[in-house]
Amino acid sequence: MKFKALGLWVVLGVSAGCASGKPTALERRQAVRDSLDKTYRSTEGFQAARWGMTLEEVRAALPEASVGPDGTLRMQTTIAEVPAEVALGFLDNRLAAVDVFFADVADPRTFHSLMQDLLTRKYGEPKKRIDVARELQWKKLPIRFAADLMPVQEVEAAATVQTTESALAQGRPKLINRWTTLESHVNLTQWSLPSRSVVAIQYESAKYAPKRADLIGRYSTKARQDLVKEL
């Protein structure tokens, strides 16, 4: 009887809150979460850009970045003396993912070793290979692109633009190693294409990863399966 009385009291309390026009406890907690989301800025990200930054803040932090022909914010840079293309992905106008592509790696094995050392210095020890292999087998580690997120600018005929991601979507990725912190998920990945190999460092905000998992992007396997139906 005590449990029934308690349940009735909770229901009456929520109803009274709605009837009085005052926010309920649940609504107040949601308002606090929404407020924290708006002010969230991680200590991690890519270079001077941090997870949670708005598009305007990222462009101020990375002034060399500009909107590419597909509507994605991109930049050209050099990392470890190797040319790199960077794609920055936003979720609800917040920086949520970054891909760094290295298309001109002369010695991939040596480059892998260098990147693993640098990423370990920044994020700590990577996950054990057996754990990564197990998660891949269970399909808990989707390899997705920052450009899968909504473009920062709508561009005419963007779907027909040839990008690094559209080329890689035809290849087969190999996850070399993975790092995780409370703020970031980082994959070191290699794609083998008929004429070349492309190495990528894919950064993802841990905070936005669950919401991103529900999205179907332009270069995802599901998206390509849907396109097959048109043939």
Rank of each mutant, 00 (worst) to 15 (best):
A158W: 00
W179T: 02
L175D: 03
A16N: 02
G217L: 01
T181E: 02
L188E: 01
T39L: 15
T39M: 13
K211W: 13
K207F: 08
D117R: 11
K207I: 03
V82W: 01
G45N: 03
A48H: 12
T24S: 11
A200P: 03
L136K: 10
R74E: 11
L215R: 01
P83L: 00
K222C: 10
A16V: 07
V58T: 06
K229A: 12
N177H: 08
Q47K: 14
K122A: 14
S220Q: 06
L215I: 14
R29I: 08
M115S: 15
T221L: 14
K140N: 12
M53L: 10
K229H: 11
A159P: 00
L36D: 05
R109N: 10
T110V: 13
N187R: 10
A223I: 02
Q47N: 12
A48R: 13
G45C: 09
D92C: 11
D34V: 12
P23K: 15
A146W: 08
G13K: 09
G21A: 02
A106I: 08
Q116N: 10
Y123V: 01
A61L: 03
R94I: 01
Q137A: 12
Y203D: 04
A65V: 06
A25I: 14
E85F: 13
L188M: 00
T43R: 10
L182I: 01
D34G: 04
F46A: 04
A209G: 06
V11S: 12
A133M: 10
T221W: 15
V161I: 06
A157V: 00
D117V: 11
L175C: 08
L215C: 02
A106H: 10
E204H: 15
R212T: 06
T72P: 01
K38R: 09
L188T: 04
C18I: 15
L215W: 03
N177I: 04
A80D: 14
D226L: 15
H112A: 08
W9S: 15
T221H: 13
V132Y: 07
S20N: 10
R33Q: 15
R94G: 05
